[in-house]
């Protein structure tokens, strides 16, 4: 009998893998394998017109952070590369903090409506999120350009006489990123707020806690998993952004995504571009590890 069981479970296992493998195979071909190619390329040297020469070298990796002196071969911290890395980090961190400052009260507002209205408010958060990212970025661009509606209104009302240069600044990039990724903060924070036990707030209030203390001592600590999940969800796409700096930052305020693209285009330095890509991935992995250790594990249980 045991052997019959074994045969049956073996055939069940075969069916199972037959069903799983097409999806896994497509992801391997379309995402995992290309990434492994990039890993390989990061240890090679650049070819003369793009491409790579097959000689082992750690040079690309060294250059992520250091400049090699042409004469005496000494390494110094690379100004340009560090500046771009630092700007990307700062802009995406600023975006995350701003999203949290704006998103938390909004999520709280939605979570404290009555259940029917909540659905409507949530729908209002999701509609912009489902709208094409490029189009939302164009909308911001139109709004803040020198001849845009904000500057026009400010000039007409006499607040300013010259248009304020907002487009093609770090401010514009940050604004665009907040605008595009805000729903990714609101939704998980809302999810963790909505689950909270209202009676805790009543108890605190009965014991004469002031609203701010209730917020600080009860609501925020309980919403921590949602806050972390939202922050990671905003931070990861923000640091890897490619489109926003092009549209809102002009040519001058590059972020790491654009720098990577440059290496594969005009820069013709595929190994360095590969190393930069993997450095970006490493930052993302660190963020994901934070999420796995402290973030919202609810809804991610296996099965």
């Amino acid at each position: 009998m045991a052997s019959l069981e074994a045969v049956r479970s073996k055939s069940a296992s075969r069916t199972r893998w037959l069903l799983i493998s097409p999806a896994v195979l497509v992801v391997i071909i379309g995402a995992i394998a290309p990434l492994l190619v990039i890993v390989t390329y990061s240890f090679l040297t650049p070819g003369p017109t793009g491409g790579v020469n097959y000689t082992l070298s750690f040079d690309a990796w060294t250059r992520v952070l250091f400049d090699r002196d042409v004469f005496d071969d000494t390494l110094t911290l690379s100004g340009t590369n560090l500046e771009i890395l630092l700007r990307s980090l700062l802009l995406s961190l600023a975006t995350t903090v701003l999203c949290l400052l704006v998103g938390f009260p909004t999520a709280y507002f939605i979570a404290t409506r009555n259940p029917l209205n909540r659905e409507v408010w949530l729908l209002l958060v999701t509609v912009p999120f489902w709208t094409n990212l490029l189009i939302r970025t164009f909308a911001i661009q139109d709004l803040i350009r020198n001849e845009g509606i904000i500057n026009t209104l400010l000039i007409k009302t006499g607040f300013i006489s010259e248009p304020i240069q907002m487009l093609f600044t770090n401010f514009a990039i940050c604004l665009g990123l907040v605008y595009v990724y805000l729903p990714l903060m609101i939704l998980p924070v809302y999810a963790s707020l909505e689950r909270q036990d209202r009676s805790l707030l009543e108890a605190a209030s009965d014991l004469y806690a002031r609203p701010f203390n209730v917020l600080r001592e009860i609501i925020v600590p309980l919403a921590k998993p949602g806050i972390i999940a939202g922050s990671i969800l905003v931070f990861i796409p923000a640091i890897g952004t490619y489109v926003t700096p092009i549209l809102l930052g002009g040519g001058r305020n590059l972020m790491i995504g654009n720098y990577i693209e440059f290496q594969f285009g005009q820069g013709r330095d595929w190994p360095f571009g590969s190393a930069l890509s993997l450095a970006l991935m490493a930052i993302v992995m660190v963020a994901l590890l934070v999420y796995i250790r402290h973030g919202d594990s609810h809804g991610h249980e296996h099965g």
């Binding site: 990861i236 995504g257 990577i260 590969s274 991935m281 994901l288």
Partner: peptide, 10 residues
């Protein structure tokens, strides 16, 4: 889990 730009260049 992979930033879009990384998948794109790969």
């Amino acid at each position: 889990m992979v930033p879009e730009i990384v998948t794109a260049v790969a």
